[in-house]
Amino acid sequence: MKIKIPPFFILSCWVAASIAPGIAYAQIYSGTSAAGTVVLSNFSSPEARVLLIAPSRGGYEAPASTAVASKSISAIPSAFKEMIEDAARQHDLDPNLLHAMIKVESGYNPQALSAKGARGLMQLMPDTARRFGVSDAFNPKENIRAGAEYVQWLLKLFQGDVELALAGYNAGEQAVIRAGYRIPNYGETQKYVPKVMAHYK
């Protein structure tokens, strides 16, 4: 949902959120359209990139990977954008798929660390990092390159089925195979796949 609204309303929203911290509220992004109109939106877009109001703990749903991020990054840093596009070209992938995965995995936080030990932008597990020759999983370029290579490998394994590739990325390819080439019945994976697909679409 995106609406265009007078600038004074932004201040009102911020004040209301500040004086009522116990009330759950959704995230709100703000920005300015090409015509100069202030835009408020509940999702990030080219016209609304600045996170004006972050969701409260009561209304926040952590990334499927349970990555611990110090803050939400609503705008894609240009350096990451270039790295993602380079990795996508190198591994014949749609860069939008990588963007969707990173959005869900880490929220573009290169220092994200999950409770299970997954690290960096694409939340590489230590075994996966070693498997794809990563020496520093918190290095954005290495992390994206290895994540993209793994995604490409999974897509080949599952004959281009994006949802199965995502399930394999989250739960491991063997879990998908044991489930009869279906999304495994793991709560995290069942949430992860549609969430990434929603961002991708």
Rank of each mutant, 00 (worst) to 15 (best):
R178K: 13
G58V: 11
P21H: 05
V193E: 07
V50L: 11
A79N: 14
G160L: 07
L154G: 05
A148E: 06
T37M: 14
K81A: 14
S12P: 09
F8R: 02
D136T: 08
A24C: 12
G31W: 08
D127E: 15
D92N: 10
K201M: 14
A35M: 11
S70N: 15
E82I: 15
K201N: 15
Y186T: 10
E61P: 07
D136G: 00
A115P: 13
I28A: 03
G147W: 05
P184R: 09
Y200D: 00
L113V: 06
R89H: 12
M101R: 13
S72C: 01
A146R: 03
H91K: 10
A100N: 02
E163T: 04
G120V: 03
S44V: 13
P95S: 04
E85R: 01
A129H: 08
S18R: 13
A69I: 14
S44W: 06
W14H: 06
C13P: 08
L157S: 06
E149I: 12
V196A: 03
N42W: 08
A112N: 04
P126F: 04
R119W: 00
L97D: 01
N143K: 06
I73T: 13
K71D: 07
N185S: 15
Q152R: 15
F158V: 08
H99S: 09
T32R: 01
L40M: 02
N143L: 02
I177D: 05
A26K: 12
Y186E: 09
A67F: 08
Q123I: 06
S12H: 07
G31E: 05
I102E: 10
I84K: 09
F9K: 13
S30D: 06
Y186Q: 03
R89C: 10
